[in-house]
Design a protein around this nucleic acid. Structure first.
Lengths: 289, 289
DNA sequence: GTCCTGTCATACCCGGTAGGTATCACTGAG
DNA sequence: CTCAGTGATACCTACCGGGTATGACAGGAC
């Protein structure tokens, strides 16, 4: 094989090891035994002629080149699975009616329903409107959905999602609020600052995954919005959300505006190289909202 | 293998067939026999559950899904080889002194030397300047160099290069000129329009590859700038170039401004997901030019 | 109609290699 | 010193990627 050609399998293996920093766990995640994984990584290092991992006395760490390959390899794997996903959709293998003109729009499940509804209504009125499948995603997963081709287009929220590599159009800007248990001391305040809510001893800030991993901290790890709502209602945590989150607050919650939180900008984003006419129509509609 | 995982090898094979639209030629290009290639494509179609090629009585054509996979597959292959290239450079495998802080800048060999010199001088004066390796490329190849990781950053020229998927910064705008044999009738004119030069019977417009393929037309196919210069000098062709091409004109050439040609915008462009500090410094320098 | 040619598919075989199991070598903790 | 935990090595097997030979089929020439 040419020395500048990596196999998808090799990239998958390396990314797994680089993320786990542990051959055993990585092998388990990959559903294989540890020795062939070790060997595959060694072959990879020999092939590209670069050392990717430091094997220390206890465990593994990334070299500089390893960090580059982790980063670039993830992008390459995303592009590869995106090719598979989009091809399958274009062929209509997952839509029983055959290859229809259909777009998959990824949205944050906890996001503003209002903006989405306006967009869908406006687009449905367009003359050549394609069918839109709305794909609700977890708290910050639209970005991954778009990168690996599960979606054709997404509503994303800067600065939480990175728009790098996508084309995008700005739709809306809003402030952020702190969502507190209604009975809490801070809930009585008219406004709050980030410092006010980030270091409350009895109310640790909720954490949710960014790009698959949780930031370390004392607060609870959040998997979905309902769980978060419950934890807040129980007085166990506090969360910071865009203003439109008011739509799903419970009676047990209190929203207090944050004065110094960065504004959240909602964009409609799509792969920069996309050539879909249906997508172009949707974007035009969105830009005119 | 999971159904949404394509191997690099499969993508390479499919892209070759999709570009050649002929199994035999594609197999030859891939350095293999035709039957295993046929089988590999069939397996690929079965795996993703979509028909990619129409096998007609005589030859092959792409289905809609096939066109999608050609497009997305090229991007995925580029991302994969980019991972290999950038990793190898990060490890210093091709720079004998080890993993140095070095950036590869792709430029059009026939481009403006002046702007490049200014950029390099300004950056060299920066406090933490990395080593810049200037990689001269063919007439429109910088884009490919950047996409497949042979370069870290490039000077690109809209509208000839597509900036899709890159971050970029505008550097310069210039008009276009027609480069004619000095003795030709049109060379006496003060200005010309595109229509004037595009249909001259005795002077067909030169053609050079865009993304690897030549546009059809009567004019000669150009491989490098010297060859083009010679053909013009011999009175065999005419070419349209940005204004800065005046720098390499011969005595046998005449440059005439074009009134209705789109302006050419030179950008500095880099992969949107890049994290290199050295690159950030170069971009900052370029933006201040 | 009958060739003949060009094209992709099928049949069958072989060797390389990806993956498994068993084990080793090393290092820190107790 | 022993033991637990880690990655590397040795060795074997089975699969599959690739090769050659050939088939099936469609047009074109006449």
């Amino acid at each position: 094989m040419a020395v500048d050609t990596l196999e998808t399998r090799e990239l998958r293996y390396f990314v797994a090891v680089a993320e786990e920093l542990h051959f055993g766990r990585a092998a388990e995640r990959l559903g294989m035994a540890q020795p062939p994984l070790s060997r595959a990584i060694q072959q990879l290092e020999r092939r590209i002629g670069v050392s990717l991992l430091e094997r220390n006395r206890r465990g593994v760490s990334l070299t500089g080149a390893g960090e580059v390959l982790l980063h670039e390899g993830r992008a390459a794997l995303d592009a590869t699975t995106a090719a598979a996903h989009r091809t399958r959709r274009a062929g209509g293998a997952d839509s029983p009616g055959g290859p229809r003109n259909r777009l998959v729009l990824a949205v944050k499940a906890a996001g503003s329903h209002e903006l989405l509804q306006k967009l869908l209504d406006a687009y449905a009125a367009a003359p050549d409107a394609a069918e839109i499948e709305v794909l609700p995603s977890g708290l910050c997963e639209q970005e991954g959905m778009l990168r690996d081709g599960r979606a054709d287009v997404a509503l994303m929220h800067a600065p939480f999602n990175s728009l790098a590599g996508f084309d995008s159009e700005e739709l809306m800007t809003e402030g952020q609020i702190a969502i507190l248990p209604a009975g809490h001391l801070l809930a009585a305040r008219k406004t709050l600052s980030l410092a006010d809510v980030s270091d409350v001893p009895d109310l640790p800030l909720a954490r949710w995954p960014r790009h698959g991993t949780y930031t370390p901290g004392p607060g609870p790890e959040i998997h979905d919005q309902t769980q978060l709502a419950q934890l807040i209602a129980l007085g166990r945590t506090v969360a910071v959300f865009p203003d439109s989150a008011r739509a799903w607050l419970w009676a047990e919650h209190t929203a207090v505006p944050l004065t110094d939180a960065p504004p959240v900008v909602t964009h409609i984003a799509w792969p920069a190289h996309s050539r879909s006419l249906a997508l172009a129509g949707l974007i035009r509609t969105a830009a005119q909202l």
